[in-house]
């Protein structure tokens, strides 16, 4: 497989042909924050947290393949502030009550809030009215927390390839919904997978909660991305 050379913040990096900027960055020990991107599922570029400057233009790192000689800017003050603004926007756009959420400590959105030291969102809270759907046997969907990353839509399918989750409506009215029949037939493993794939606490597996004590959760002692950074 041919190897490409490219640069992130002046660091010389190597990529395999076809690799996206975020994937290749990871292999080179450079962390580009991602939220809607998830290993093993097709990138969708919905959240824009991975925005980098490629040859001077803003591009989503998770959907842009590396090209030979590419000049990528990543950790600049401008991009970092824009990423922080996106996180703050996501916090005000839903109802994110961290102290009440089972995902707290394991939540990617919250972890990015920590990484960027979000003291308070710079935008006004929108207090949207959103539903909690607790009608399903294996999972609960709390739409207050959904950030419309579509990880569940893309990543959770039945054994024969049918999508269990989908979206209703468009724009700021977009809501995640589950197919009633498929969701009713979900196994415990699928429910766990759905909870794990959701970056926030919008999909929760029923009958377990707050299982891991504070201090031992994923993002309690080390920032998101610190496992990648070298």
């Amino acid at each position: 497989m041919s190897e490409l050379t490219f640069f992130i913040d002046n660091k010389e990096c190597k990529a395999k042909k076809g690799q996206t900027i975020t994937e290749a960055a990871r292999d080179n020990g450079v962390y580009i924050p991602t939220l809607c991107d998830y290993p093993g599922i097709r990138p969708a570029g919905t959240c824009r947290i991975c925005t980098v400057k490629v040859n001077g233009r803003n591009m989503a790192g998770c959907t842009t393949p590396v090209e030979e000689g590419m000049i990528v800017e990543n950790k600049t003050a401008e991009l970092e502030d824009m990423r922080k603004a996106i996180i703050e926007m996501l916090f005000v756009e839903g109802n994110h009550m961290c102290p009440t959420c089972e995902k707290s400590g394991n939540c990617d959105l919250q972890a990015l809030g920590y990484r960027y030291t979000m003291m308070v969102p710079r935008f006004p809270y929108l207090w949207p009215s959103r539903e909690i759907d607790a009608s399903m046997p294996k999972i609960v969907i709390d739409k207050n927390r959904c950030i419309q990353c579509l990880r569940c839509v893309r990543g959770i399918t039945t054994a024969d390839g049918k999508h269990i989750f989908g979206t209703l409506h468009r724009g700021d009215k977009t809501r995640i919904s589950a197919d009633p029949e498929l969701v009713a037939a979900m196994t415990d493993e699928q429910a766990q997978k759905a909870m794990d794939i959701c970056p926030v606490g919008a999909i929760l597996k029923r009958e377990v909660g707050f299982k891991v004590p504070m201090g031992k959760r994923k993002y309690d002692s080390a920032p998101i991305g610190s496992d990648i950074e070298k």
Binding site: N95, M97, C98, P99, M119, W127
Partner: peptide
Amino acid sequence: GECAIMGGLPAMRND
């Protein structure tokens, strides 16, 4: 704290 910053638990009644 969270209640001062975003309403916190009491704000769960906001809807």
